[in-house]
Design a protein around this nucleic acid. Structure first.
Lengths: 229, 229
DNA sequence: TAAGCAAACGCCACTGAGTGGCGAATCTGA
DNA sequence: TCAGATTCGCCACTCAGTGGCGTTTGCTTA
C-alpha cells in the first residue's frame, strides 16, 4: 500500500524542482525544434537560431541532445526506449519473432497522444530530409543491436544460435523499417502539416494505420524468404 | 590478336591522360587515407593532413569523395557497385533470395587482390571506429534500397508484392551485416595491422572465410524466422 | 535561515568538416 | 596552335560540436 500523497500516475508534483525544470527545457527544445524544422526545413534552421528562440545556450542544448538530428527524432527514440522496456518485461515463450512483434505493437499502443503528434511530425521531417532518414535508420540499427544483446543474455548463449539471434533482430527491424516507410509514403502529402488542424473530419493518419502496416509486414515475412521470380 | 605493345590486363595507356591522372589522384588519396587512419586512428587524422600528404587541395578531395568517411570505406563501396552489377546481369529465376546470395558471393569473388587488402584494412577501421561503422551500415541500407528498386522493376510490379520485395532486400542485407560483423569480430585482434606482413605462415583472414560466413548466415535465415524460446 | 555543496548553466574561444566562388593551370580536339 | 572545356588551387566562409571556466540555482544540513 502506498500513501495517498504519493500519486503514482504522472506525478509531476513530487518531482524535485530541478527535475521539473529540466523536463521543461527538454520539452521546449524538442517542441521548438519540430516547429522550426517543419516551418522552414531542417537544413535551413541553424542550431543557434533554435537555441535563441528557446533562450538557452548552445552548450546547454548539447547537454540534452547529442546532435541536431537527435532533437528532431526525439519521439522515435522514445518509442525505442519503450520497445526495449516492453521486451525486457515480456516472457520469452514460443516463437521469438512473435514476441518481438507483440512488443513493438504494444510499445506503439502505449505511447500517449502527445507522442503521436510529435511522432507524425518527426516522420514528416524524415520523409523530406535524407540526413534525418539516415539518423533514423541508424537508430533502428542500434536498437536492433540492443535487442540482440538482450535476447542473447536471456536465451541460451550457445555460439551456434548467436547468428540466428542477430538475424532475427535484423529481420524484426527490417519489418519495422519496411512498415514505417510504407506508412510514410502513403501519407507524404496528406499529413505532416506544420500547423495540424485538430479535428479534420477527413481520415487522418493515425497510429492505427501504422499498427496495421506493422502487422501486415510481419505477416509477409515468411513469404518474402521464399519469394520466387 | 593485339599488338604486343597493347597490354590488355590493367591497360592504363589507352585511357585519356586526364582520366589516368584522376585515377592516380583517387588512388593516392584512398591509399594515403588508409595508411594514416590505420596508423593513428580515424579521428586523430584531419582532412587537412591527409590532403597535405597527397599534395592536393581540400577542395579537390571533395571532388573525389563525398566525405571523410567515404574515403575510408571506398573498398566497400566498390563491392556494392560490383554487387549491383552482378544483380543487373543475373537472370531472375527460382528463389530470389538465392539469386541475391549468389550475386553477393560472386561479387566478393570477382574483386582483385588489391581490393582484398584494402577491404581488410577498411573493415579493421570500421571495427574500431563507430563513426565508420555507422557509415558502412548506411551504405548497406542504401544498397538495399537500390536492390529493391531493381527487383521492383524486373519482377511484376504489383503493389502486393512490393512489401515482400522490400523485405527480401532487407533480409538479404541483414545476412550481409551479420556475416560481416561475425567475420570482423573473429579477427579483431589477429588481422588489421597497419603494415601487413606479406607471407605469414599463420592462417590469415581471407576472403574465403568471409564467403564461408556469408554462406553460413544465409543458411541460417530460415531457422531464424521460426526460432523458439 | 544561513551556509555550504553540487548540479546545471552561460559564455567564449576553438576545432574541423564541408561549401561557394573565381581565377589559373591543364588537357583535348580541330 | 588556338579556342573550349575540365580540373584544380586558393581563400574565405558557414555551422555543428567541444573544452574550459566562472557563475547561478536548487538542494541540504545545521
Amino acid at each position: 500500500m502506498r500513501t495517498v500523497s504519493e500519486t503514482n500516475t504522472h506525478d509531476d508534483r513530487p518531482l524535485p524542482l530541478r527535475e521539473r525544470k529540466k523536463r521543461r527545457t527538454r520539452h521546449a527544445l524538442s517542441e521548438a525544434a519540430l516547429h522550426l524544422f517543419l516551418e522552414r526545413g531542417f537544413d535551413a534552421v541553424t542550431l543557434d537560431e533554435l537555441v535563441d528562440t528557446v533562450e538557452v545556450s548552445k552548450r546547454t542544448f548539447f547537454r540534452y541532445f547529442e546532435s541536431k538530428e537527435a532533437v528532431a527524432t526525439a519521439a522515435e527514440h522514445e518509442l525505442w526506449d519503450t520497445y526495449l522496456d516492453e521486451l525486457a518485461n515480456a516472457s520469452l515463450t514460443g516463437p521469438v519473432l512473435d514476441v518481438l512483434h507483440a512488443c513493438l505493437t504494444a510499445a506503439v499502443r502505449s505511447m500517449d497522444t502527445e507522442w503521436e503528434r510529435r511522432f507524425l511530425a518527426t516522420r514528416g521531417l524524415i520523409a523530406r530530409t535524407p540526413q534525418l532518414r539516415d539518423h533514423s535508420d541508424l537508430a533502428s540499427l542500434l536498437t536492433q543491436e540492443r535487442i540482440a544483446e538482450q535476447l542473447g543474455d536471456r536465451l541460451d548463449g550457445t555460439a551456434t544460435s548467436d547468428v540466428r539471434i542477430r538475424l532475427l533482430s535484423e529481420i524484426a527491424m527490417a519489418a519495422w523499417r519496411t512498415a514505417a516507410r510504407r506508412w510514410v509514403r502513403a501519407n507524404r502529402e496528406t499529413a505532416f502539416r506544420p500547423a495540424a488542424e485538430p479535428e479534420h473530419g477527413q481520415a487522418a493518419t493515425t497510429r492505427a494505420d501504422l499498427i496495421d502496416s506493422i502487422d501486415a509486414t510481419y505477416a509477409a515475412l515468411g513469404d518474402s524468404l521464399t519469394l520466387q521470380a
